[in-house]
Every structure is written in C-alpha cells, then in structure tokens.
Design a protein around this nucleic acid. Structure first.
Length: 574
RNA sequence: GCGCCUGUAGCUCAACUGGAUAGAGCGCUUGGCUACGGACCAGGAGGUUCUGGGUUCAAAUCCUAGCAGGCGCACCA
C-alpha cells in the first residue's frame, strides 16, 4: 500500500466525476498530476500540483481552480480534514485523525509487505561476471552488491528476478590463465622457475590452484602444454570459479544462473545468431574505420563481418570478427543476449563497471536488433571505488598491477558495512570507501547509526517484555500524536514512495539514505524524554502512553524491511 | 578528436525522473547528557547549484554553447 497512490487515484476520480463543474475541457495530461510529500516547513501530509497541471491546458487561473478543487475534495473525501491553497497553485492537504489511524493500522497489520507492490514482471539481472581467472577484487565489489540489492528490491516489489553471472571462460585470457597454472605446476613438479611474462598471471593464488590440482590429480601429465590443456583448463576454471563463488558468498550474494561463454560457443549459438542478424540485414561484410585519435601501430584494414549497430543508436558499427576471422568477444556476447531474449524476460538489466561504459551502446543496439526493439535493456554503470584509510589513499599493491581482493577487504571490515557503504552513494558517482570510518561506532558511520536505532528499539521491547512480532493496533479515540510523532508518521508514509522510486529508476542508494533519515527521527524521538519528561516513553518498566508503542513498531518495521532489501543484518543488541 | 559519467555549503554527498524557503553528515560554533532510555540530542553560522544563453506559471533537474575532473574509444576481454 502506498497512501500517496491511494489518495491520488481518489483525487483523479473526483476530478473526472466533476469535470463539468470545474469547467475542464481537456484531461489528457492527467498523468502529470502528482501527490507528494510537502516541504518540510509546512504542516501538511500531502501536496499536489493538480491545479497547476489542469489550469495550464484548460487555460484557467491555477489559484481559482485550486480553491474550487479544494472545496470539492473537502466535500467528497472524508479523510481530508484541511486543505489550503498555496501559490502558485499547489494544494496542501492535512489528513484527519481517522485517516491516520486507518493507514497506520494497515501498516501494523501488513508488516513484512509494507512498501512493496505486486508488479509480477520478470527480470534478468546480469552482474559481477568477473573473469574466471582469479578471486574477486574490490573493483567487482560495488557492482556485485548493487546488482544483488537491485534484485532484492525488484523481488520485494513482487517481480520475478533471475540473478545471472556470465562466465567469460573463452578466449585468450583463459589460455593465459591456464598456461600460468601449467607453469606453476611445472614449478612445483620439476622445480622450473616461473618467469613472469606479459599476459601471464603472477598472483600467489595461481600457486594454490596448481598445488590443489596436483594433489587431487596425481596422474596428470604436464609434459606438454597442448596435450594437457583441456584437462587443465577444466580444473583451473573450476578452481577460480570456486574462489569467486566463495567471495560472493561471504558478501551475501548468490546467483541463480551461471552462463558459460564456452558452452555458448560449443552449442553453435554464435553462428546461429549472426546468421539471424544477417538475414535481417543488420550484418554486412566490410571494412571498419581505424579508431579515432591516435592510430595504433599494428592496425590493419581487414575485411570482416560487421554488425550495423549505428542503425540502433551506436556511434560506430562493430566488428563481429577479429583480424583472423574468429568471432570477437562482442559476437559471443550478442549470441548470449540472444539467448537471454529467447528466455522471455520482460526486462534485461546489466550491471557494468565504469571501464565498460563504452560497451553499452553496442550491446543495447544488439538487443534492439535481435528483439525488434521489443525487449528493453538497461545498463547500469557503477563508477570507481577509491579506498582510503584514515583519509589517506589506501594501496596494498606490492607490485604494479596487483589488486586488493575482496578477501583482504573482508579482513578489514565486515560484510554489513561493506554492503551498506557501497550503496550509500548514487551508482553514477565515484565512491570513497574509508576503512576506518566504516569501523567507527558513531554517527559518522551510517551503518552503525541505523543498526543502533534498531538495537535501541529492541531494548524497549525487552524492557516491556513484548515482541516486535506482536500484532498491535491503535485506537481512534485515544490517538493523539504530538508534533514529533507526526513527523515520524509522515516519514513512514513516505517509505513506499522511496521503494517505488528506487525500483523504477534502478537506484537502490535511495534506501540507505532514507533509512538514515528515519533513524535520525527515531534517535531524536528517543532523546526527547531527556529534555522534557512529558515525552518519556517508559517509566518503571512500563509504557506511559500506549500509542507511542505504535511509532516504535512502525520504525522497526520499516528499518527491517529496508535492511532486508540491503542484505544488512540488524543486531538486537550492540 | 569522439562517447559516457560527474560538477550543489570549507569537505563528502542528497534532492522522490520540472515544483514551493535546495537538504543531510563531517568540520566550525553554542548548549544538554555517568550511560542499552545519552555510542546520542538540540541550536547557530555556512549557497549566484561550474559559466553563458534558451524553453515556462515553475529549472540543480530539460535544450544549447563552453569550462573543469573521471572512465573509455581497432584488435583484446
């Protein structure tokens, strides 16, 4: 339930029913009418631009129209107790006590679903898709958490979400990776020195993979790289995927589907997909222009198959074949997306790192081409994460090219803090992540601040010997919220709006920001009793004003629903 | 040279897809508070939303021309 939606449709209905009375000739921009949270300094519950929107197309004076609408609404909707018109034509609405009680009781009754909707769409969300050549590093972390929480958010809204991981287990990098493992095995077995060459993976984890392969497969013959390649590849990939899955698990992330690139090649899906595009005239044989700017030394003009992605908004047409005629990474990816389309999702979402921004246009172009523009694909980009320790840039690299792994990060800070902080910023903005800040137990640390609010609420329930799962309700006759409680009610009513906007815009960062604000209201409410004893909640182990319990419950409900979406735990004691 | 992202208080960032007096935290400043009912709270100062044009009842938000920073730009993945 979303009270803004509910009352907005009532307002729309009333307007429609009284079209003549209001002298409205056209209502074609009804969709632009909104019902929103009034500015902070005004003492109202709802605020609408109805009159401004309707006055424009009907060429009426917005203030006059607003006061006519005001009278009409006061007559037709009993939940509206007071309405005022504000320049240039807004109407501000105060809900009656009955309305507040009605809505609050509804929330108290439907705790777990408060804020959610029942959309029933299907989503495929591809995220992480880190190359299976080693463990995850911090760069993957943000996108991983973003994708996971976005999935939670969309599921919370009643959608069906498939979390997918595309395994890039094909191509040269895999060959290099396997060769690295191969050389490490020889290092162990034959005491050959591992010489770091370009393109080889030097990391210590390769040694561990090598050791384990030797341990589990005593008979493996590593005399000749070519002969043992396939077998070694199988073991190496399995090992590196195990590392990645372990990292993901520790971050609280689990994918539903792992899609292998080499399987896709094996099934001949690339050829089939390219042929399909050829048939529809989106592929041609030709030459590509050299890259703009500085032309690389080994640039060659080669005849090849090209996808005409400029037809779908890309800046240039894209190669499907490499210089040697084999398929490009992009060609494989087009086939992969063709497979996604065939699985009939309503929406496709890809979560990418900032370094893949340039890839978006071509792959969305491919999806448009493959689906006749019917399937919608959104690509969300997560900007870079910069690590800090006590305000200083933090680098662990012993050698250039080394990275900070997720494991190292988890050694420093816990999963909850990482998840919350990685989302506490718009995905479009770069993110500074300070190890020490995140460990602080102060207001500086938003994770703590929200968790602390919940812990305090639990201390109340312990004192009163009640459970937050208890079913309570409030009574119209006794209900008399004070100004602080009124603020809380309004904030709580806002929650479904936050969820909806976060889901629609694919911007989960709105959730932690909101939770922080809600926690502020709670801490403030809690502290009021110290300044003025009439605001005290508990005395001698008993609740003073029965209704104040409702506010505690409301806050607990929303914090819990919010943190569940974020995948961050809520300790009852801290 | 081209594309995408960013530019908002001293610093780090919000602003519900065009709304009202642009909000938080940190820092600064004034006050309260022996603790799971002070890990906090209340108040104050702090703004030409990068710049110039445009669109309209209304612009941080949309269009346009610039400026500054980040990421990327054959093939590779």
């Amino acid at each position: 339930m979303n009270i803004f939606d509910n009352y907005l449709s009532k307002i729309n209905e009333i307007i429609l029913d009284n079209k003549k009375l209001l002298k409205l000739t056209t209502l074609d921009n009804l969709v632009n009418i909104n019902l929103e949270v009034p500015p902070d300094h005004l003492d109202y519950d709802l605020s609408s631009n109805v009159s401004l929107v309707l006055a424009k197309t009907n060429k009426l004076n917005p203030i006059n129209l607003a006061s006519e609408i005001k009278n009409l609404l006061l007559k037709k909707e009993s939940h509206f107790e007071k309405i005022d018109v504000a320049r240039p034509g807004f109407i501000n609405i105060k809900l009656s006590n009955d309305a507040l009680v009605f809505n609050i009781n509804k929330i108290l009754k439907n705790k777990d679903t408060f804020g959610s909707k029942k959309y029933k769409k299907t989503y495929n969300i591809e995220f992480v898709s880190a190359n299976p050549t080693g463990p995850m590093h911090v760069g993957h972390c943000r996108g991983a958490i973003f994708g996971d929480v976005l999935s939670n958010l969309l599921s919370f809204n009643g959608n069906k979400v498939v979390r997918e991981y595309y395994i890039n287990d094909y191509g040269n990098q895999i060959r290099n990776f396997v060769e690295s493992v191969y050389l490490r095995i020889r290092e162990i077995k034959f005491k050959e020195k591992f010489v770091v060459k370009e393109n080889l993976y030097p990391g210590d984890y390769i040694k561990d993979i090598a050791k384990n392969i030797i341990k589990d497969n005593k008979n493996i013959n590593v005399e000749n790289f070519k002969n043992c390649y396939e077998e070694l590849k199988k073991f190496s990939l399995k090992a590196s995927m195990a590392l990645i899955k372990d990292d993901l698990k520790k971050l609280g992330i689990e994918h539903d589907n792992f899609f292998s690139e080499s399987e896709l090649v094996k099934k001949n899906l690339v050829n089939i997909t390219v042929k399909e595009l050829q048939n529809r005239n989106f592929v041609e044989e030709g030459y590509l222009d050299p890259p703009k700017g500085e032309i690389p030394k080994n640039w060659k003009k080669v005849k090849r198959l090209i996808f005409k992605s400029t037809k779908f908004g890309d800046d240039a047409d894209r190669a499907l074949q490499k210089n040697d005629g084999t398929w490009t990474y992009f060609a494989n990816d087009v086939a992969y997306h063709s497979d996604k389309i065939s699985r009939k999702f309503d929406n496709l979402i890809n979560i990418l790192g900032a370094d893949h921004t340039g890839y978006i246009k071509r792959i969305t172009a491919a999806v448009s081409a493959l689906s006749n523009k019917k399937v919608k694909m959104d690509c969300k980009v997560c900007q870079l994460v910069k690590l800090y320790k006590n305000g200083q840039p933090f680098k662990m690299s012993k050698r250039a090219g080394d990275f900070i792994s997720v494991k190292e990060l988890l050694n420093e800070v816990n999963k909850d803090s990482i998840r919350f902080m990685m989302l506490n910023r718009s995905n479009d903005a770069e993110l500074d992540f300070d190890f020490e800040k995140v460990k602080e137990k102060t207001k500086d640390n938003p994770v703590f601040y929200v968790q602390y609010a919940y812990a305090r609420i639990n201390s109340i329930s312990r004192t009163l010997k009640i459970s937050l799962n208890d079913q309570i309700s409030i009574n119209v006759k006794t209900f008399q919220p004070n100004e602080y409680e009124h603020k809380i009610i309004r904030k709580i009513f806002e929650w479904p709006k936050i969820v909806e906007s976060a889901a629609n815009k694919l911007e989960p960062h709105k959730i932690p920001f909101y939770l922080y604000e809600l926690s502020t209201l709670f801490h403030s409410y809690w502290s009021k009793g110290n300044e003025d004893s009439k605001f005290k909640l508990i005395q001698n182990g008993k609740i003073i004003k029965e209704d104040s319990l409702a506010f505690i419950y409301l806050i607990a409900i929303v914090i819990k629903n919010g943190m569940t979406i974020l995948g961050v735990s809520l300790p009852e004691k801290m």
